[in-house]
Amino acid sequence: FHVTIHVGDITFHIHGVSEEEVKKLEELVRRGADWREIKKTIEEIEK
């Protein structure tokens, strides 16, 4: 999957994300995680 996440003024683009990881990111966004937490999760996914 290709994912784009907008957190305030920050936009993250992630490529090659599995469905499971998409759900993890959706959950973070849904519970209102700040951009640092989302960035950390994205960095883990990209490894």
Rank of each mutant, 00 (worst) to 15 (best):
F1P: 06
F1A: 09
F1H: 12
F1Q: 12
F1E: 07
H2Y: 10
H2S: 15
H2C: 09
V3E: 01
T4L: 08
I5G: 02
I5F: 06
I5R: 00
I5H: 01
I5E: 00
H6E: 09
H6P: 03
H6N: 09
H6V: 12
H6R: 13
H6I: 13
H6Y: 09
H6A: 09
H6C: 10
V7I: 13
V7K: 05
V7L: 12
G8R: 04
G8K: 05
G8P: 02
G8E: 05
D9M: 09
D9F: 09
D9I: 07
D9W: 07
D9C: 12
I10G: 04
I10H: 15
I10A: 08
I10E: 10
T11E: 07
T11K: 07
T11G: 02
T11L: 08
T11F: 09
F12I: 10
F12Y: 12
F12K: 02
H13I: 13
H13Q: 13
I14S: 02
I14G: 01
I14P: 00
I14C: 08
I14D: 00
H15D: 10
H15S: 13
H15C: 10
H15N: 11
H15E: 12
G16R: 05
G16Q: 07
V17D: 01
V17W: 13
S18N: 08
S18C: 05
S18F: 06
S18G: 12
S18Q: 07
S18K: 08
E19F: 15
E19T: 08
E20C: 08
E20Q: 13
E20A: 14
E20H: 12
E21L: 12
E21Q: 15
E21W: 15
E21Y: 14
E21A: 15
V22Q: 08
V22C: 06
V22E: 03
V22Y: 15
V22I: 13
V22G: 04
V22S: 07
K23T: 09
K23Y: 12
K23V: 09
K23C: 06
K23I: 09
K24N: 07
K24W: 10
K24R: 13
K24F: 10
K24A: 08
K24P: 01
K24C: 07
L25C: 01
L25G: 00
L25V: 05
L25A: 00
L25T: 00
E26C: 13
E26P: 00
E26S: 06
E26V: 07
E26L: 11
E26D: 08
E27Y: 06
E27R: 05
L28N: 01
L28S: 02
L28H: 02
L28P: 00
L28D: 01
L28W: 02
L28I: 05
V29A: 07
V29C: 11
V29Q: 05
V29N: 03
V29G: 02
V29L: 11
V29T: 04
R30Q: 15
R30Y: 08
R30C: 05
R30E: 14
R31D: 12
R31S: 14
R31N: 14
R31I: 10
R31Y: 05
G32F: 03
G32N: 07
G32C: 08
G32R: 01
A33Y: 02
A33S: 05
D34T: 09
D34V: 02
D34E: 05
D34S: 09
D34W: 01
D34R: 03
W35M: 08
W35H: 05
W35G: 02
W35Q: 04
W35R: 01
R36Q: 15
R36I: 11
R36S: 15
E37W: 02
E37A: 03
E37S: 03
E37K: 03
E37N: 01
E37F: 02
I38G: 00
I38M: 04
I38R: 00
I38A: 01
I38L: 05
K39P: 00
K39D: 02
K39L: 14
K39E: 11
K40H: 08
K40N: 09
K40I: 06
K40C: 08
K40G: 05
K40T: 09
K40A: 14
K40E: 12
T41D: 01
T41E: 09
T41M: 15
T41Q: 12
T41V: 15
T41Y: 15
T41R: 11
T41N: 05
I42A: 02
I42C: 03
I42N: 00
I42V: 06
I42S: 00
I42L: 11
I42H: 00
E43K: 04
E43D: 11
E43I: 06
E43L: 07
E43M: 08
E43W: 06
E43Q: 08
E43C: 06
E43N: 05
E44K: 04
E44A: 07
E44G: 05
I45P: 01
I45M: 14
I45T: 03
I45Q: 01
E46I: 15
E46G: 10
E46Y: 15
K47F: 09
K47C: 13
K47E: 09
K47S: 13
K47L: 13
K47I: 08
K47W: 08
